[in-house]
Amino acid sequence: MTMRTYEVFLKKDGKDEFRHVGAVHAPDDEMALPLARESYARRAEGDLMWLVDRQHLLVADPDLLAPNADKPHRHNDGRRVAAKRKNERGQV
């Protein structure tokens, strides 16, 4: 049997989103489902499960993401605004 790799996603009932929980090896789609269930959901970790054959994933080139590594202005955590307002209050 040639093995394929599947990425496994689980979701609990409710508003939580699907989360990636790991991968399984299986010979084909039909067997991947029960094997994923045994590997990741045997303690009722999820109510819904997605499997994606890894060969169907679109994988981005790291260079596509790299230019965004140095853009602190996109991390708006409010600290600069808070500091400015505090400073203004101090001047009153």
Binding site: H25, E38, S39
Partner: peptide, 11 residues
């Protein structure tokens, strides 16, 4: 024979 099957069979 492989990890996933090990888990399944023992379950």
């Amino acid at each position: 024979p492989f990890l996933e099957e090990d888990l399944a069979f023992c379950s």
